[in-house]
């Protein structure tokens, strides 16, 4: 088979790349040959480690401090990427927050923060990058969640923002065609810092695992591989799609039934 890096000569910009799913995406894109710029919030040390790992893969890395809750910072991210790495071919809107717990008492501020980070942020990123996309074509991938596909009153604001992100994916796919493809990945239960409390408690970990037909939690690499596929020429006729990466979690007519 051809082992040619899929992204040789290409530049990717990934938001929220210092840990979890974003870190796995940064490393997977670099392993396939891309130079990668990524934003991080507060975690300077983790970001430096990710940057060093990219460089060990023989690619250029650019770690950019940024607050994803401030969508206006998207312009700076894009400008820095262009200035330092020369172009933007692949955009991955990954930065996100879990938002407030529950549905009964979500404050206006929590709504704003969750929607601005998880929904307006990804939109702003595309808006900022659009004039600078490589003329040969570009690819955008948003990281949503199965929480955006199913009911999730335990994380209402998050769920609504992630559903909005899937809608954004479809509309931008139409608006930016044919030169730019826009797709989403909707992960299920993935082991990250965001879900640490859940997978570190044996009881919760197992009760969740029980609802996953594949019988295991997801790993950040499961999601990163889907991003590589969607961003690559392998998916050249795929746009506006949501690639669910959840071990089959969203298949059941009620979570946990059929056991």
């Amino acid at each position: 088979m051809s082992e040619t890096p899929q992204f040789a000569g290409k530049v990717a910009l990934v938001t929220g790349g210092s840990r979890g799913i974003g870190k796995a995406i940064v490393l997977a894109l670099a392993a396939e040959g891309a130079d990668v710029a990524f934003s991080y919030h507060k975690e300077g040390r983790a970001a430096r480690e990710v940057g060093a790992a990219v460089e060990r893969l023989g690619r250029r890395a650019l770690a950019l401090p940024s607050d994803a809750a401030q969508p206006e910072e998207a312009d700076d991210l894009v400008q820095s990427t262009r200035l330092k790495l020369g172009r933007v071919d692949i955009l991955v809107g990954n930065a996100g927050i879990g938002g407030p717990t529950g549905w009964e008492a979500v404050s206006l501020q929590a709504w704003r923060e969750t929607l601005e980070t998880n929904l307006v942020g990804p939109y702003s990123l595309v808006r900022a990058a659009r004039p600078h996309f490589a003329p040969s074509g570009a690819s955008v991938v948003f990281i949503s969640s199965i929480s955006g596909l199913l009911a999730d009153p335990d994380s209402l604001a998050y769920s609504v923002a992630k559903a909005g992100l899937l809608s954004l994916t479809r509309s931008l796919a139409l608006a930016l065609a044919p030169s730019v493809r826009v797709n989403a990945v909707a992960p299920g239960w993935v082991r990250t810092d965001l879900t640490a409390k859940l997978h570190e408690s044996p009881r919760t970990r197992e009760s969740i695992q029980h609802t996953i037909p594949r019988g295991r939690w997801g790993e950040p690499d499961d999601v990163a591989a889907a991003v590589v596929f969607l961003a690559s020429k392998m998916a050249r006729f795929v746009t506006g799609e949501t690639l669910v990466v959840d071990g089959g979690n969203s298949l059941r007519w009620t979570a946990g039934s059929g056991d």
Binding site: R214, R216, D222, A225, F229, V244, D246, S250
Partner: peptide
């Protein structure tokens, strides 16, 4: 193998 956690899609 990279799609090991994708099923029912």
């Amino acid at each position: 193998l990279e799609a090991d956690w994708v099923t029912g899609l």
